[in-house]
């Protein structure tokens, strides 16, 4: 379904981002190819979540170059970037408490054909089907996380930015999320995962970028993981 698009879905180069006066990103560079699962690893506060937010324009100021599917987006407002095919799942999950599960699911507008139907989404997340009319505020942490991911599958986005989806969840739910990521990859989605949990990310991802002090410190291919174990551990250890 993505043959019409170039291989390079996301290119970020020399990306700087600010919250108010704080300079958070100091020239982040990375690329994501079509169909890849790529992780952004790093310590707390290294700038991984900010990188996702800066791609979407959710920071107070940003400069540099971000292109989505070949199109420069640095000057666009967030909703226009989302409509190019970017789905965003925030770290705090962002489930709207005053909306029902189904209202949450139906909130993002459909931007192009090829997204998943409500039935397909409910097949992938049977829990959500059972709770379709519950208020968003009544969901458990795991259900909220499922909903936050499910919500960006319907509009037809092809690039998913997922921020810390395993954070604070029970192992059995983390396992389910791993399955979900595999299924999404198989469907052709391109995924950028910000992860703290390296054991979750390692078997899923094609490539890993390690972010440190607002820059990319290393890029490691899946094949080279074993020989780089020590390096990764030293980059990620607190």
């Amino acid at each position: 379904m993505l043959e019409a698009y170039p291989d390079e879905i996301l290119r970020v180069s020399d990306l700087h981002a600010f919250y108010g006066e704080s300079h958070i990103l100091h020239g982040v560079d990375f690329t994501v190819q079509r169909g890849e699962v790529v992780t952004l690893l790093g310590r707390n506060g290294s700038g991984r979540s900010t990188t996702l937010k800066a791609i979407l324009g959710l920071v107070s100021r940003r400069s540099g170059h971000v292109s989505v599917n070949g199109r420069q987006v640095i000057g666009l407002p967030p909703h226009r970037i989302a409509r190019l095919g970017v789905g965003y799942c925030p770290e705090e999950r962002g489930i709207f408490a005053s909306l029902s599960v189904e209202e949450n699911l139906l909130l993002p507008p459909v931007i192009r054909a090829g997204g998943m139907s409500l039935d397909e989404i409910y097949d992938m997340f049977p829990n959500l089907k059972e709770r379709r009319s519950s208020q968003g505020s009544k969901l458990s942490g795991g259900e909220q996380q499922m909903l936050a991911i499910a919500r960006i599958l319907r509009p037809g986005a092809y690039l998913l930015l997922l921020d810390e989806i395993t954070e604070g969840l029970a192992p059995v739910i983390v396992q389910t999320l791993g399955e979900v990521i595999r299924k999404l990859k198989a469907r052709g989605y391109t995924i950028v995962l910000v992860e703290q949990n390296f054991h979750f990310a390692a078997p899923l991802a094609d490539r890993h970028y390690v972010i440190e002090h607002g820059r990319v410190a290393a890029m490691i291919d899946k094949e080279d993981l074993d020989e780089n174990k020590d390096r990764i551990n030293s980059l990620l250890s607190v």
């Binding site: 979407l56 959710l58 407002p77 967030p78 909703h79 989302a82 409509r83 965003y88 925030p90 962002g94 709207f96 408490a97 005053s98 909130l107 993002p108 507008p109 931007i111 919500r151 960006i152 509009p155």
Partner: peptide, 11 residues
């Protein structure tokens, strides 16, 4: 509830 996120979802 959260205007930034709503905008990030394409609205």
């Amino acid at each position: 509830e959260n205007p930034d996120l709503v905008q990030a979802l394409g609205i």
